[in-house]
Nucleic acid binder design. Structure first.
Length: 305
DNA sequence: ATGATTTGACCGGC
DNA sequence: GCCGGTCAAATCAT
């Protein structure tokens, strides 16, 4: 786990909030601007682009700061979970075993993959830009929350063997310990394994700093890094039973209290690029929506870091 | 109807 | 033998 000196952490958080508030204000300005009639040919005034640049710059700085405050660790998966062999034993697993009719013979039906090609991070969001399909959930010894298992949705069509394991941290339920496997599919929506390995946020910083949201690169690097504090489970009654659907989507759909769906509008502005939204995870293009900013502000206000 | 999720069983590594 | 990862039928959601 990375550590940061408390005073530095405090400064970073303050700057983070300043950046986010500024971004929010500029976004509001942009909203007002976009509500006005468009210019000839349906184009937006040049000042809109300036505001967009400002917003992106603000987010870029914020993400940089977040990068410092988030604990992002690179621990070999082989040592990822301190699971001392001691501890309470679960006994229900070996209970009555014939509720299911005639399970077909599965002896030797699969090989457990080596973990050498996996890597673990602790992030505030489950989302990583890939499309995943949940295939299992398991209670883990000495862990309060179950571990969820996901595989790449492109396994059937591209044979991608990537899997990821997501587990809420016991101490910090809004943080997720995520173990990634390597993607072999070509449908990476946001960033490659390598870039994620270096820094989960960096690709977006690069993109932001390009200040060119309509460039062709946007096909693969649109500024929608799903950093969101809305990482709650989709079902309240099963706090640990989150589904594979990314919560940001729900967050965006829940209805904004004060801000319209500006990011949808912004994306629409770039809609001359086909089909940015090509999979379920791209619905997280709302990931940087106003809810996030509002929550950050609320979070800062309510929570003494 | 189809695809996604849930969940108990199965399997392999330690 | 225990524990965690995976399978796959059942169930749910759209």
């Amino acid at each position: 786990m990375g550590t940061l000196r408390p005073e530095k952490l405090c400064t970073n958080r303050k700057r983070l909030m300043e950046e986010l508030v500024m971004g929010r204000d500029v976004a509001a300005q942009l909203r007002d601007l976009l509500e006005k009639p468009t210019g000839p040919g349906g184009s937006w005034p040049a000042s809109a682009e300036g505001l967009v640049v400002k917003i992106l710059g603000s987010f870029s700085a914020s993400l940089s700061l977040l990068k410092c405050t988030c604990e992002v660790c690179k621990i070999p998966a082989s040592v990822q979970v301190g699971s001392p062999s001691s501890g309470d034993r679960r006994s229900e697993d070996s209970g009555e075993s014939s509720k299911r009719p005639a399970v077909k013979e599965r002896r030797g039906c699969y090989k457990r993959r080596k973990t050498s090609d996996t890597w673990m991070k602790i992030l505030p969001t489950m989302e990583d830009g890939h499309a995943w399909r949940k295939y299992g959930q398991k209670e883990i010894l000495n862990a309060k929350f179950p571990r969820c298992y996901f595989r790449c949705t492109h396994k059937p069509d591209q044979g991608c063997l990537a899997t990821k394991q997501v587990q809420k941290l016991q101490e910090e339920p809004h943080m997720y310990q995520i173990t990634f496997g390597h993607h072999t599919c070509t449908n990476t929506l946001k960033f490659s394994q390598h870039t994620l390995d270096c820094d989960p946020i960096k690709p977006y910083l690069l993109n932001f700093e390009s200040n060119n949201i309509t460039s062709d690169q946007d096909h693969h690097h649109h500024p929608s890094y799903p950093i969101s504090v809305k990482t709650e489970c989709n079902k309240e009654e099963t706090e640990s039973n989150f589904s594979g659907k990314f919560p940001v989507v729900a967050a965006a759909a829940e209805g904004e209290e004060e801000e319209p769906n500006m990011w949808a509008d912004l994306l629409a502005m770039r809609s001359d690029h086909e089909d940015v939204i090509s999979s379920t995870t791209t619905t997280s293009s709302h990931g940087l929506d106003m809810d996030f900013l509002n929550e950050c502000v609320d979070f800062e206000r309510d929570f003494s870091w």
